[in-house]
Amino acid sequence: SEEEEEEWRRAKERGEEIIILGILWKPNDEEAERRIKEALRRV
């Protein structure tokens, strides 16, 4: 969703871990980033 995407962007800017759509994303975690982008597209 729009607000999840916004939340994720803010976490990326701050360089902090975030759990979004049930996926743990850490800074520079390209695999998780790809999965999150896929999940955001499906929503």
Rank of each mutant, 00 (worst) to 15 (best):
K12R: 09
A39S: 02
K37I: 15
E16P: 02
W25S: 00
E16K: 09
E6T: 08
R14M: 11
E13I: 09
E31K: 03
R14E: 09
I20M: 03
E30I: 12
V43Q: 14
E13R: 06
K26I: 12
S1D: 12
R14D: 05
L24A: 04
E16I: 11
K12D: 05
E31Q: 07
N28Q: 10
E3M: 13
R14N: 11
I19H: 04
E6N: 09
S1Y: 15
K26D: 03
R34S: 10
I36L: 06
A39T: 03
I23S: 00
E30M: 13
E17M: 10
E13F: 06
E16Q: 10
I19S: 06
E13Y: 06
I36G: 01
I20Y: 05
G15E: 05
L40T: 01
E31W: 06
E33L: 07
E4S: 13
D29A: 03
R35I: 08
E31A: 07
S1R: 12
P27D: 04
E31I: 07
A32Q: 02
K26W: 08
G15P: 01
E17T: 12
I23H: 02
E33N: 07
I20G: 00
L40G: 00
K26G: 05
R41V: 09
E7D: 12
R35K: 13
L21F: 12
R34I: 09
E6R: 07
V43H: 15
E7C: 14
I36R: 01
E4D: 14
R9D: 07
G15L: 06
L40M: 07
E30L: 14
D29S: 05
E33A: 05
R10S: 06
I18R: 04
R10K: 12
P27S: 02
S1E: 14
E3W: 14
R14P: 01
R14Y: 08
L40F: 09
R10G: 07
R34Q: 12
I19Q: 07
R42V: 13
E38V: 04
L21V: 04
A39E: 08
S1I: 14
N28W: 11
N28G: 15
G15R: 05
R34W: 12
E4V: 15
G22P: 00
A11T: 03
E30Y: 11
G15Y: 04
E5F: 13
V43S: 11
I19E: 06
E13G: 04
W8A: 03
E4N: 11
V43F: 14
E30V: 11
R35S: 06
R34Y: 10
W25P: 00
R9I: 11
I20Q: 01
G22H: 03
G22R: 00
I19P: 01
K12W: 14
G15V: 04
E7F: 15
E5T: 10
W8V: 04
A11S: 07
P27V: 03
E4I: 15
K12V: 10
A11Y: 08
E2S: 15
E33Y: 05
G15N: 08
